[in-house]
């Protein structure tokens, strides 16, 4: 019985986005740590575009190369390959010491990332709860 089938694309997507948001937090932390370092260029992780195209690829994802392999369902193959790009933000607003980190912007981005991470965890929990309820047959 293919147990993997009860978790759809959405659970896969939520798990991957948790992964990516954790990496984004690491980059934001390093931007904040280097807010006073001369000559430092801030960087960020961009992954929304990659997630979108991975989802659109959907059905054409991975296919079984050998008849006895269990094919990966739906978009999971291409979703697993999403890694996110580390993009340099540039030194447009750098001070005289060559440091380009904007403290306020980084704090804002960190808050947004944290809220989205927590929201994703909650939605994932809700999905699992719904599955458990269906299995149990009652509340």
């Amino acid at each position: 019985m293919p147990v993997q089938g009860i978790f759809g694309t959405t659970v896969e997507l939520l798990g991957k986005s948790l992964d990516l948001r954790a990496k984004r937090h690491a980059l934001i932390s390093s931007n904040l740590a280097n807010v006073e370092t001369p000559g430092y260029t801030p960087s960020e992780l961009s992954f929304e575009g990659q997630l979108k195209s991975a989802l659109n690829q959907g059905g054409k994802g991975a296919s079984a190369s050998h008849p006895r392999h269990i094919p990966i369902k739906g978009a999971s193959g291409s979703l697993q390959r999403v890694e996110g790009d580390v993009v340099d933000l540039g030194n447009a607003r750098s001070g005289p010491d060559g440091n380009g980190v904007e403290l306020e912007a980084e704090m804002g981005r960190m808050a947004e990332n944290q809220i989205m991470y927590n929201a994703t965890v909650q939605i994932l929990g809700k999905k699992f709860e719904g599955l458990k309820q269906a299995i149990r047959g009652t509340l």
Partner: peptide, 28 residues
């Protein structure tokens, strides 16, 4: 709506929360 939230489009968190709650309550 979850997919649109993950890819950064859509109206935002409240849309997702409402949709998820509706689905969950109607399933219950």
């Amino acid at each position: 709506s979850i997919q649109s939230l993950a890819t950064g489009q859509g109206k935002g968190l409240h849309e997702v929360m409402l949709a998820v709650e509706k689905a969950s309550i109607s399933f219950q």
